[in-house]
Design a protein around this nucleic acid. Structure first.
Lengths: 197, 197
DNA sequence: CCATCTCCCTACCAAATGGTAGACAACGAC
DNA sequence: GTCGTTGTCTACCATTTGGTAGGGAGATGG
């Protein structure tokens, strides 16, 4: 197994720390200590904390968009495809729970970080919107504002983060499996609202 | 108009600042400057930053629970009541947009803050759960896990915060009115999934 | 064997943070 | 008038933060 280069290891550590404890709450020193290096080594690879966040956003957005795009371009249509896309996110989130946490964190941070991530994901959103319109034109889905549907689906996905928070507040650490099952159930609630027939 | 006592003004300022920019991101100095006082005056009323957060959580949870309780104890049943409760939150959030922001922020902060808020809202959650069970027993609502339904409804409400973030990422400041309309639409999506007949 | 480049380190620094100590003005009670 | 209380302030402080300057070990290449 090839040793991961420092550059990537820093991104990994930042993803975990910032996606769970938060950006302001995790200093470069703490980040470095967890990697067995010093803060100055981080600043060698990334000129500032903000630059590191920027790089992390770029990589994470690409990872998310990549997974969803694959499902979106794949076979099938109607509800099956909606489910396939959402499931692709769940699979990713089960492997890297901090990814969704980072999305939540970045959107909370506001511009310029949030703007950056939003722009990065925009092509994907547009493609998803087009898909929904096609489905509605074909009569396979009830007619709604596509952006509204995307928002509802997005809420379902990002709700996973909230759910983790709530469970943690009770001192309970949820398993990836239980989370995915639960979120899939919530998704099913949407199904009967969205689909015709 | 009676001048609001300092104690309350501090809570108000903290709610706005922490509910939008975040807890770690807003120092006591900044908070005090906005009030035209010094950090030491804040520390006179609240022994520490954490104690201030604690007091803020208590007051905010009470405010939220109070509004929802009134709607929950009111007349009506079935979907009308679900809508009444959610609308009561929307009305509150339209007047004090930072309230939901604080809920999001606190759940992100994790224990002990999140635990505190969760406990504070627990009675309300239990009562809501009982209401849903009554409705299902009476056949006015499809049978589901009540906690699942609450989670779905909660996602709809808290999604308002996410929506604000996303819009702000595009440099757009949403109006309270447009937000409420939008969220009500999302809520309607749930309706057909939940109700019988 | 020397020069260069890569990568991480030690040593600092200025600014900001949460918090403490204590002075001081206003004010009501006696 | 004096005394205690209340509420705010100025003056500090220790620690932490993001960031800079520069040294040095080790590989690489001529």
């Amino acid at each position: 197994m090839a040793t991961t280069p420092t550059r990537e290891r820093i991104l990994d550590a930042a993803l975990v720390a910032w996606g769970t404890r938060g950006y302001e709450a995790t200093s470069l020193d703490v980040l470095a200590a967890g990697l067995g290096i010093t803060k100055q080594s981080i600043l060698y690879w990334y000129p500032s904390k903000e630059a590191l966040l920027d790089a992390l956003i770029a990589r994470s957005a690409q990872e998310l968009a990549g997974a969803m795009n694959a499902a979106l371009e794949g076979a099938g249509n109607g509800w099956a495809k909606v489910e396939a896309v959402v499931r692709s996110v769940f699979r990713l989130a089960a492997r890297r729970p901090e990814l969704l946490g980072l999305v939540r964190e970045v959107s909370r941070l506001g511009p310029p970080a949030a703007t950056r991530m939003t722009l990065e994901l925009q092509p994907l959103v547009r493609r998803a919107s087009e898909f929904l319109e096609t489905e509605m034109d074909a009569g396979r889905m009830r007619r709604h504002d596509p952006n509204l549907l995307l928002l509802a689906i997005y809420s379902t996905v990002i709700g996973m983060v909230t759910e983790v928070d709530v469970l943690r507040a009770f001192g309970e650490e949820p398993t990836a499996r239980s989370l995915v099952r639960r979120r899939t159930d919530v998704l099913q609630l949407l199904r009967s609202a969205l689909m015709t027939g």
